[in-house]
Computed example of a mutant assay.
Amino acid sequence: MAGEVSGRRTRPARTGRMARVRRWWGRALGSEGHERSTVLLIAKGTLAATIAWVISYHLLHAQSPAFAPFSAVLIMQVTVYQSLLQSSRYVGAVVAGVAVQAALGFLVGPDVPAFALVALVALTIGRWPGLGSQGSQVATAAFFAFSTYVSATSALDKITQLGQIILLVLIGCGIGVLVNVTVLPPLRYRSAEHGIRTLAHALCDLVSDIYPALRERGLDEERTGRWRARAEQTGELVTQARTGLRMARESLHYNPRRLFRRGRAHTYFEGYAAVLEALERTLRQVAALTRSLDKWSADEDRYRYGAFLASYADFLESLSWITRVFADLDEDRLGEQTSQLHQLADEAQNYRRGLAEQAERDDLPLTDPGRPYGVLVIEAARLMEEFQYTCDVLQHHVER
């Protein structure tokens, strides 16, 4: 009985894991994304390491052949630019470490005080900012070089082995960079789109929560406080979007695949950067709107000026349709989407004008600093300006 119960418990768990594995591979094979990037990086790293091992072990018969495949995998970065940058820093760190060992080894000898001095100098050099994240490799190379130096039997053998370390590192880095450049070098166009989509989704969700509450006049303090908190917590999304855009631009440097997209990449990235900045400003305007709503505590005003709130809800709903398009931004459909955005922006402008006319009909106390109406009307105008500018910027860069 216990075995049957145990079997029933473990079988669904295994089935669930297998289903997740199948979904993961389905995403990797079916579309661009993190899963496919992971598979490609592993495959390219395996290829580079294997080639480096064959050259270092079977052709050069090196005494420490692992240096070559280790170096090849270490600098197999996501972008070609990063591979070149990190490989140059890594080679510089290794050369510095080996040079420190060579100089101090021949001057001081292979004793413990010499090792301590090598460690001191190598760790100090590794702090140089120019080496970046590869600074620790100075000490690593120096320690391996010291081990090789101690085991060598003659001065010529010592020099040969130390030089071979540098040669193997150069071979590994060269193979790693060559594989990354020639075997599906990564382009990160979608990283820029993904960041804008995520930011637009957050904006769409927030606006879509606000306008039904305005229509229903459900502006309690708890709800407006949540809106304000959500609007003020979008800084991390902005940072992620900027990182995605930076990676997308960086992936073009020294990438041969950019030749097939000549004349498009620079224009699109300029447009995406402008859209990102505009969305960031729009989020700040929405945050200001939520602060104004959060300060509104006069219940009787909401019922007295219900028509104004309904007009404001219509205006925000029209903006939510614009954010939905940005949340589905796609390079392959930008022409169609910019036309759609232009039409939606015109509709939103009409709703914004209707809101201003409703405020005049209701004779709202727009100049009363104790009431939110004047601020809300101003925020609506500013929001519309930012949304219109965002749509115009994207259309301008698509038409270039």
Rank of each mutant, 00 (worst) to 15 (best):
E270A: 14
S318C: 04
R215M: 04
V238L: 13
R284D: 15
T282V: 07
F326V: 01
A310L: 13
E221S: 14
L252S: 02
A298I: 11
M247C: 07
R291D: 15
C204E: 14
R197H: 07
D220P: 02
G235L: 07
L279D: 03
E222P: 08
D209F: 00
L237H: 06
R242W: 15
D332S: 15
H266D: 12
L252N: 00
V286F: 03
R217I: 01
I322E: 01
A200M: 08
A273N: 14
R261D: 07
S320G: 11
L237W: 05
Y211N: 04
R264G: 09
L219G: 00
G263Q: 07
I322S: 01
A213M: 13
G271S: 09
Y312G: 06
R291N: 15
A200K: 00
G244V: 05
A313G: 06
R217E: 09
S318T: 10
T224M: 01
I210Q: 00
D301R: 02
E270N: 13
L203G: 10
V325G: 00
R281P: 05
Y211T: 08
Y312T: 03
A274Q: 14
R223E: 14
L245V: 04
T239A: 13
E232L: 04
G244W: 00
A307Q: 14
E277F: 05
T282C: 13
A274L: 12
M247I: 15
R324A: 11
H266W: 06
Y305F: 09
D330M: 10
T234K: 10
T234Q: 15
A200R: 00
R304M: 10
R262V: 07
R226G: 11
R284T: 10
D332L: 06
L219D: 01
A241N: 01
F315V: 11
S251R: 01
C204P: 07
Y211F: 15
D209K: 08
T267Q: 04
D301W: 02
L276N: 00
A287G: 10
L203T: 08
A298M: 09
E300H: 05
D301K: 03
L316E: 00
R302H: 13
L259S: 11
D299E: 14
W227F: 12
D299V: 09
R197P: 11
A298F: 09
A229Y: 12
A313E: 00
A287W: 02
L293Q: 06
D220H: 08
L206C: 06
A231N: 05
Q233N: 15
R261S: 04
L259C: 07
E236C: 03
V238K: 09
Y211K: 04
G225C: 12
Q240Y: 08
T267D: 10
R281G: 15
E250T: 09
L316K: 08
D205S: 10
A273Y: 01
T224Y: 00
E222S: 13
A298N: 07
